[in-house]
Design a binder for these strands. Sequence first.
RNA 1: GGGCGCGUAGCUCAAUGGCAGAGCAGUAGCCUUUUAAGCUAUUGGUUACAGGUUCGAGUCCUGUCGCGCUCACCA
Length: 511
Amino acid sequence: MTDEDRQYSPLEQTRLEKLKRLQAMDHEPYPPRAERTHTSRAAIAAFEAAEGKEGVEPVRATLAGRIRSTRLMGKLIFAHIEDGEGRVQLFLRSNDVGDQALDLFKKEFDLGDFVQASGEMFRTKTGEVSLKVQSFHMLAKAITPLPAAKDEEIDGEVVRHAALTDPETRYRQRYADLAVNPDVRQIFKTRAAVLRALRQFLDERGFLEVETPILQPLYGGAAARPFITHHNQLHQDLYLRISFELYLKRLLVGGLERVYEIGRDFRNEGVDRTHNPEFTQLEFYMAYADYNDVMALTEQMIAFTAQQVLGATAITYQGQAVELAPPWRRMELKDGILELAGIDLDACPDAASLAAAMKVKGLAADPTAPRGKLIDALLGDVLQPTLIQPTILYNYPRDISPLAKNLPGDPTTVERFEFFIAGMEMGNAFTELNDPLEQEQRFLEMGRAYDAEKDEDYQPMDEDYLRAMRYGMPPNGGFGLGVDRLAMLLANQPNIREVMLFPHLRSREDA
RNA sequence: GGGCGCGUAGCUCAAUGGCAGAGCAGUAGCCUUUUAAGCUAUUGGUUACAGGUUCGAGUCCUGUCGCGCUCACCA
């Protein structure tokens, strides 16, 4: 869109006229630099520290922020500006700034503009620590008005009387959402604290943070359909990674004993309240550990993170009390299915008998699906919604776990677990398969069981990964965590989009 | 992809098939301690888009687009 065909709303046109008037009187509306001596909080603190002491100079300050409210009272103006730490009231009086400047503020300054103001801190008659302004200047004129109308402060709590609530506008214009909804800003501070805590936990245990390719010639490490892209110069199709697993385990071959990566995965799948096409994953791999060690570490890591972020392991998620402190409930997957779905897997040794048992229970069962996928469906549909308190389900079917090591003495089962909190699948882990010959067989089994053309869960053979493993891979435990879902849990948000700054939405011509 | 619901002023929302409205924001004023300031006046609409039914459509019907919930799919 060019300048010529951009349509400004009447409100925007009004502000553009103000902008021109400011320029006409040499009041630069977008100066290159600001002068700020104090944040809002620091200025108030400095005043309160000096207040009432003998012989102390008044606190002089230059504050900067966005105008959030104005109260025009003839020869007097009260206004609140907001910065990253909070709000502070400006007090402008014609006696101090002059009639001309007061008029300038009244006529040309709007809610949403960034300004700086200089003066002395003082306390108003009603007791609010404020800045008695002597001079002020525009820092950035806002053309488009912010959506929020007004806030009221009651007993220190900011009450929003009208604000941006439409989810579509909030996600498409996250900048406006953040600008007017402080609680949204808080969600992303919480999310950052979650990431800090996870890194701290792993760093303290000798894990090395690494970065591996996002553009990959082959995808793997999870059961998901990939996004495909293309490198022009190399004339090569590339996949956006669906997991980090196969690259991180190559690093164990190289002698890095404990590695982790926090980054973005991309899965070309459905979107719902717990799925976004791109999402943040944490994976770690730990040499000489097995899935029992990883279970213990998982409990500690999640409890540590909650403690760091919220100061407690007892949390409330969407009205439900959840206790994250270890020990968590642990059940074998087949016991969970027996207890919660009433189906005895030992009595259903093949896909046909299991599908029949599921139909008896009134559950949909795809008659063409392999047994492992049926079990996975049972797990997701029946067990998962009931798993509110942290729960580890362990020992998974081999045919849906091609990278996990066999459970000794049971050729159909692998040493794998998933953990669930608040009805969400939070993560997945296993004793990693490190036998290159068996790994090759597993890839071949997957190739036979899943049609590459039709089945999204098909995982291609990765010859380079097998070559790496043939050099010798130490036994190890691996772990994956949906970081966004953990952020949902700890920020008490019902939808993954609430913890992603720019969640994916369908394109619109007008947005 | 299926089902259900929603889309009206910058924001939040009204409007039995019968003149498209309110609060806040905006604009013009009054007001030297306000804080949702107050008071007076006032501007602002292709009712998402395209068709249809009707004397008359924001409202009913069809289609399209977008969003939400949900099912399917999917860690």
